[in-house]
Nucleic acid binder design. Structure first.
Lengths: 193, 193, 193, 193
DNA sequence: TATGAATGAGGGTTCATTCAT
DNA sequence: CATGAATGAACCCTCATTCAT
């Protein structure tokens, strides 16, 4: 029956929930464990979140908001397109390294029955950002002429997969540099192109 | 009380399980439904699979074996490295299109507490295959000089993400061609390189 | 894991449910206790009834059907109106004595949020039956002229209350004869009327 | 942190409790809502009532006391027995109309495991009052000779049922007059008696 | 007096698994 | 081989009650 500030408790719960959801996935995660790890009673969890679903949504939304805000500023800064894209990729990869578990959750549970729309919107926005960067790069001559729409899809997919690999396979470490080199240069020798 | 060959029943169950697991994910899938769809009694399922987990493992392994076999032959065939890699990627992407739901399951539940080792082995083998192809390409001069190990990691990650995107986002359609162009050429204009 | 015929189990559950609902009322009754008394596992209850509510409904409906059938035949038999009404009242009072606990439940939980319509219909039908009997009695001169509709309402109310009293107050024993005398004769002395 | 007189707070709580208990019944009523409606904190409720049960008991007792006081005076006034009984019935029926929801609660939850004794005593006292009125009526020749004890039981039962019907069935409206006519005259034609 | 965050037992329900037939 | 009724642990969630402030 310790008194705590409400905010403190809420954050403890979210931290614990992040942990448990990440390890077990949504369906297998259980409130008892989240409460135990948070050092809160079961009922205490329901003081801050109406139910399991809302707790999950809160987690997802908080993180999407955070990343969304960071990437939004990239396009605005006056950089070359390749610098901007490089920055964008680094931001995502580094974020993935930092929040390994969450990112895993974020990607794995993407197919869920709720919160889907918010997530799709988030991914679409990120993809559109990449698309605009590519178009700028083509205009400035930095990038070769290609279908920006298609390319954005492939790049976003690749990014997702790379992050997933890093989170899932502990023997796979991918640096932003590796990602950049791959995306910018491709495999073929320049002569051949 | 119908008599069936054991094999026939086992396959019915696996087919039904694939369906249910794909639609609901591992945790939410339930044996009753699998049995019903298979046209088998609940107890019957346990005649062929010790428990839910083993049923799931069997499904995963069957699929990994299938793809593993197909990709294995690619390297053997006398093709150029780029043709072989292109073939490899197409094979995965087309397979993903064909078994969309399963692939989704495969990736989504990849973080599970069981079956992880088999999956890691599978992915490692596929990655090594890609690595060997890249090394061959570098030797023959097809590919520019790069760290084959790193490149293989990124490519396998990208592949995974592209497949995931196709499965999750219904507005994202990625063809093998798009994938190829991206991987081989990169974004930069040849002149710049 | 004893094998039982489904019907046997279902009846055991309904008997136990009748007991527990009667003693505790709907809200305080709990499935665990019903299962224990029925000698069935918790899950077993859900094999026969989708949920607590349906179990309750089944109980109510079964009993209403039973009484409804019995009273229905009364009007059909060629008796004098007073005999028929006497019979009707006896039937209800005796039924109440026999199924004391259930009747209690029946009356007490009448105000519930579900199953209300069925119960209201049941009571309305019973009241209409009484009304017809009174009208017949007035036609034949057995009963004094009075508003049959009003009288039926009061009689049904009285019946309900008498039954309730018998069920709740163990020091109140009311025989069908007492009920009859009261309803037919009233309190006033004949001379005064 | 508002300061209030203890009595004021206690009455606010009882008013709110009456409201909530009436609407939801004992088991489903919850302290949080009672506190909210009373404009008092949850803990505040426990300053005045040891627990939910005691709050409920207080409510019941308050009401029983009120009606008990009113009916007590009836016998004392020098009226004819029939006038007194008529008055008694009217008082109960009108009270029921006024406190419909509470009466409903009163009757519905009467079978509870606590507060039973007080209620039984109340009903017994009321019944004894009726019994004395009937005995007086028989002595004065107003009422026909009958078993006053039995008759009192039936009349109190009827009263209870009539009140219950009014509370539960919105299509049943019973006036004190209807009740009176029924109880005094009965159904049979005077000639027949 | 008064607050309301915190507690945790206990509720309804689900479902993987067993086993008598 | 095959069945499906039965089991019971474990899930999510509610709410009467407590107590540090």
């Amino acid at each position: 029956m310790n008194k705590r500030s409400g905010i403190e408790s809420k954050q403890k719960i979210m931290k614990a929930a992040m942990d448990v959801f990440s390890r077990k996935g949504y369906a297998k995660a259980n409130i008892r464990e989240i409460a135990r790890i948070a050092g809160i009673s079961i009922g205490g969890v329901y003081l801050y979140f109406r139910n399991k679903e809302e707790l999950y949504r809160n987690l997802i939304n908080e993180r999407m908001l955070d990343i969304g805000n960071k990437t939004e500023t990239i396009a605005g800064k006056s950089q070359s397109a390749s610098e901007a894209l490089s920055h964008f990729l680094s931001l995502h990869v580094e974020n993935a390294l930092k929040h390994k578990e969450f990112i895993l959750l974020h990607i794995r549970e993407h197919g869920f029955t709720f919160g889907v729309q918010e997530k799709k919107n988030f991914f679409r926005k990120q993809r559109e950002l990449v698309e605009r960067l590519i178009q700028r790069g083509i205009r400035t001559g930095e990038f070769r002429k290609c279908n920006a729409d298609d390319m954005a899809k492939v790049i976003m997919g690749s990014l997702r997969g790379v992050i997933l690999s890093m989170a899932l396979d502990d023997d796979v470490h991918i640096t932003p540099q590796m990602m950049n080199e791959f995306i910018f240069n491709g495999l073929l020798t320049p002569a051949r192109k």
